[in-house]
């Protein structure tokens, strides 16, 4: 409940603190992180290829928006579907493997998609990206207005959060955590582990797809990096910094990550160094990320007063 109030307050206040475009980017990246964390935090699967779904959705929906003038809702639906379907394909190949092989396979398939986008210049624009993705108006609301678009993104983010909360509180959420805790036992009590992992992939892919479309519409372009491994790495990075053990970790992580990169990149070209330091601190001292750090500080201050 307290978390919800904090998030609502953040949604309302954020556009007054940073530019609406950056505020939108924070919530978009948070949706992306929510999808990853179902795999990383709940199922215990480190996917290093989430931008496959993010990028594929951005390209497909962006292309249709640009050339076929589809509506906003159609674009969202298509993005979610493309995210889910690409995750189904990739997940199908990956869930049979475990450990390092699993991680490398998600990465390798990500590279495969990346090079398809890189080569297929007539559609994706290759290295130049795919510019000219419109933000069509809907119900008389002009989404070219950054504040209107921010509100739209925020609503979708809150919806995504609500949906993800339902999922992690459901039996599925418990089964996925059971798989993380003990795969052999989960199988023995009667769960087809690869199929549940695949389901987690598809749901995570759908969230990534939603984030991808919103991203394309936000910047009006699908850059090649949207499907690159750096994007895959960034979402893992942000989620770990925020705390993969909690539903809200990726949201905090997204906030820290985007805010740092947007504010610091202007001031200091070497800003990723800060992220590196933050990451090292998390790995060494706060495995549970910002969420755990906050928890410990809060408990510590309660003990001392």
């Amino acid at each position: 409940m307290r978390a919800l109030v904090l998030i609502l307050a953040a949604v309302v206040l954020l556009p007054f603190i940073v530019r609406p475009a950056i505020a939108s980017e924070i919530w978009i990246f948070a949706i992306f992180g929510l999808g990853l964390n179902l795999l990383l935090g709940y199922t215990g699967l480190l996917s290093f290829g989430q931008s496959t779904f993010f990028g594929s959705a951005a390209y497909v929906a962006g292309y249709l928006l640009k050339h076929y003038a589809i509506g906003v809702f159609a674009a969202l639906g298509i993005g979610v579907a493309v995210g889910a379907i690409s995750a189904l394909l990739v997940g199908y190949l990956c869930v049979q493997r475990s450990g390092l092989y699993f991680i490398m396979l998600t990465f390798a398939l990500n590279q495969l998609f990346y090079f398809i986008a890189y080569q297929w210049t007539t559609v994706t624009g290759g290295e130049d990206g795919m510019p000219g993705v419109p933000r069509p108006a809907m119900l008389g609301i002009d989404f070219r207005d950054p504040v209107a678009y921010y509100i739209f993104v925020s609503v979708l983010f809150l919806l995504s959060l609500w949906l993800m909360k339902r999922i992690v509180d459901s039996p599925l959420g418990k089964i996925l955590q059971g798989i993380r805790e003990n795969e052999v036992r989960a199988e023995a009590v009667g769960y087809h582990v690869p199929r549940f992992k695949l389901l987690a992939f598809v749901i995570g892919g759908a969230f990534s797809g939603l984030a991808g479309v919103l991203y394309a519409m936000l910047f009006g372009i699908v850059p090649l990096e949207a499907i690159g491994f750096v994007t895959s790495g960034n979402v893992v990075f942000a989620t770990l910094i925020g705390g993969s053990g909690s539903l809200y970790g990726p949201i905090i992580g997204s906030f820290v990550f985007i805010w740092l990169s947007e504010s610091m990149s202007v001031v200091w070209a070497r800003w990723p160094l800060l992220l590196g330091v933050a990451f090292i601190v998390v790995v060494l001292f706060f495995r549970g990320g910002v969420v755990e750090a906050w928890d410990r500080i809060w408990r510590f201050s309660k003990r001392t007063t």
Partner: peptide
């Protein structure tokens, strides 16, 4: 399942073999 409560440990097995998985998600 080490991180789970005892109830959740056992619940997971009970749910697996329950008659229907309606509302799974």
């Amino acid at each position: 399942f080490p991180a789970f409560s005892l109830l959740d440990n056992v619940w997971l097995a009970a749910f697996a073999c329950s008659k229907s998985w309606r509302g799974l998600l």
